[in-house]
């Protein structure tokens, strides 16, 4: 009895378990097991309106800068207004492209409004390296990545 506290009342768990089972089945059937995403490439002759263009002299200082990356089979060369730094592929892969991250960080500080980087890629360059370099620039908000063949 309720007053005596002697009787034990059990919560009816059947609808709760039914609901959980339905949820589990639904979520399992709609689950996406492989997470895929996209790294956007802006090819050379595509819409240039997406590239930040300066509207004043002050803004020009924040946008200017000629950032280029030359990706080869065994090396990556980073260009900032003609000054280049070269890294071997082994070093970059070993450091998880830390030099590219540093370069992107420096460029972001120097040109806060710039959003485009040109990647010139050799025919023998490995696709994985190209994506890795692009990934590092995307992480620093350089979202207009122009990919070109090395001979252009």
């Amino acid at each position: 009895m309720a007053g005596g506290g002697g009787d034990k009342y059990n919560l009816n768990l059947v609808p709760f378990i039914d609901l959980f089972s339905t949820l589990v089945i639904f979520l399992l059937s709609t689950a996406v097991w492989e997470q895929l995403a996209a790294v956007p490439v802006n090819l050379g002759n595509s819409d240039q309106n997406k590239v930040n263009m300066p509207t004043s002299k002050e803004e020009a200082k924040l946008v200017k800068g000629d950032l280029k990356v030359f990706i080869k089979k065994d090396s990556v060369e980073l260009f900032d207004q003609g000054r280049s730094t070269r890294f071997t592929r082994e070093d970059l892969v070993g450091s998880q492209f830390a030099a590219v991250v540093q370069f992107a960080d420096d460029a972001r500080l120097k040109y806060p409004l710039k959003n485009d980087v040109v990647l010139q890629v050799d025919d023998d360059a490995v696709y994985e390296d190209i994506v890795a370099v692009m990934d590092k620039f995307l992480g620093r908000d350089f979202d207009q990545l122009v990919v070109m063949g090395a001979e252009f």
Partner: peptide
């Protein structure tokens, strides 16, 4: 190697497909 991608990209650009999404895991 990039040369294989370059060949496909060449045709894509010629046909006006200039926004290319490279599929990655993540």
């Amino acid at each position: 190697n990039f040369v294989y991608l370059k060949r496909a990209m060449y045709t894509l650009v010629e046909e006006g497909y200039t926004n290319i999404d490279l599929v990655v895991q993540g």
